[in-house]
Design a protein around this nucleic acid. Sequence first.
DNA 1: CTTAACAATGAACACGCTTTCATTTTTGTC
DNA 2: GACAAAAATGAAAGCGTGTTCATTGTTAAG
Lengths: 346, 346
Amino acid sequence: MSEKPDRKAARATADLVAREANVSRVAVSRAFNPNASLKPEKRDRILKVARELNYTPDMAARALVTRRSHLVGMIVPDVCSPWESQEIDALTTALQAEGFATLLFKAKADFSMDPMLLTYMRGFNPDSVIAFTENIEPAVLSSFLDRAVPIYVIYDDADAFSGKASETLYDRLLVRQKDGIEQAVALLQGYGVRRIAYLGGKKQSLANTERERMIAQVLADRGMAPPVTVPGDYTYDTAYRSTLDLFRVGSGADAIFAANDVGAFGAIDALRHELGLSVPDDVKVVGFDDIPQAHWKSYNLTTVRIDLDDRVRALVRLILRRLKTPDADPLVETLTTRLVVRGTVG
Amino acid sequence: MSEKPDRKAARATADLVAREANVSRVAVSRAFNPNASLKPEKRDRILKVARELNYTPDMAARALVTRRSHLVGMIVPDVCSPWESQEIDALTTALQAEGFATLLFKAKADFSMDPMLLTYMRGFNPDSVIAFTENIEPAVLSSFLDRAVPIYVIYDDADAFSGKASETLYDRLLVRQKDGIEQAVALLQGYGVRRIAYLGGKKQSLANTERERMIAQVLADRGMAPPVTVPGDYTYDTAYRSTLDLFRVGSGADAIFAANDVGAFGAIDALRHELGLSVPDDVKVVGFDDIPQAHWKSYNLTTVRIDLDDRVRALVRLILRRLKTPDADPLVETLTTRLVVRGTVG
DNA sequence: CTTAACAATGAACACGCTTTCATTTTTGTC
DNA sequence: GACAAAAATGAAAGCGTGTTCATTGTTAAG
């Protein structure tokens, strides 16, 4: 870590570059704006001088006049969650390549957003906002919408949504969770499973609600017993305790469908290391997400995969399109899910 | 996700608020600047009008004149790494509370930084830069230092550094890694371990180099055989493969000291699930970091803990102090490490 | 060679805010 | 109630850039 003793350090401005290169300040601006017309040799000379002077256009000044901050705000409840950190990583990489920087904010643990935080965030004028927090308040939404900032709330849309883009005002990312869930349930049924427990995620999470609803629906379609619902919050520790509670009561469940992979890990460890049960012999376990840890040998988790690359690509496509053509018609991107079979079911 | 159909959406400015509240624009500015002198009732009235108009000061405009962007740049090679994501999360939370927003950038996988990226980043004028990338290039450093931006390169300083602040130009975070390493080696020796393998991290990582050097030193001090060094890169998969290689060759190692917890997980899984060895009966394993996953029952890892809270607190203290008093003398914050005993040694 | 069309150029303005600085109002003291 | 000191106020200047718009320099067509 370090710091410059000399505080005088004047940063180079476009004016200085212009003077040094014997051109007008406007020419310097044009040199850094690829689609502006400027004689090539002149541009080269300016860029050379700029490099020597260690000059970079000031984004703040630029944002002030262009009304584009080149910032994309991300609101995240828990950066440590493997699934979210993957998304942050991938989105940041993709947006960075397009010239946008990630502005990171922490939401409150209960997935809600501090109104103060949002007000503060608005001050930075992000060109777009991506919220990993699902229960975003309408007031907050409209406060951004007043400034015509496209907001992307990341959660997995219900299949119930028909897919007719014209029916909605917004861009949407539609994740067909049912596809993977059907494959998972079919596999479990094939192994003779009779009673499935659903180990939930955060109550406020829409993705969680949808998953629960859809699992119930698929079970009903196949003539199976409705799921036993076990409380969870996407964390290992809660999943661990809930699993203990479930089996000490003796619910008769012979399979656990977890709302996310981390929860599945907690369930597996409770079963194996505290209840003395075997996975998959006594109890089968299926997760959701397919995070990198799912293939770790200690878990080797069978799970419903949401392809991160596809997901991020679709999201970036939506965002960039909206930024470039703000008045374009709302678009719906659809993703599917599929079961990845590993060792916790067979 | 959503977008406002109406693009006109004029954002409220200080001028508008001033007109609406029958005051001068200067008064509005003062209302939002706590230490400016303004009659309390007047301030209240202004803030009320501002709230009604949904007004927030524009940070870009503010930054332009105050020369403070209230942005802290973070350069991260891998957001998904549990240890790094923890740090990002904690730092963002702490800085957010102090009114700073996190500007996130991805470094290249080899821990180096793309010069273009840095140039781009400089354009945002971060008030400070925190680099999780350890082999930061001097040219890059000085390009920021020219603007008197304090840079914090996060790695664990050698104990070799005497702690005399006057001898360095920079603020430093000194992590006494040796403390925990000594405890770990003592424990291993107590269990009769004779030959320790060091499962390394990324070659470019200074923390890794330091850890290796210090383990060798502690072993020598205790009259033990020098460590067998096994190549690694902080990832699970590499650790897994390296461990297989090590034991198939038959190195005679009866303990593995991993450069980080994730690497330790890979080693444990290779030993248990592929080599048919027992941890801790056949081979003892010690990790480094104490990430949350370390207490998961499948691993239950004995590891050298670097207290994240202490670490972040110290870092935030350094950063804020430097931002408030840029000319203050360089300061050194010292942290210790300690062994957390769980199930992979006893 | 002339004229029209076009590319290149720079002066001036705007973006939204903070900060002097000189002025006015309020407060405190005898 | 008079004076000095302190607090409150607003006009104007400026932060570093992009963008008209009118002007100049250059090329293409006739």
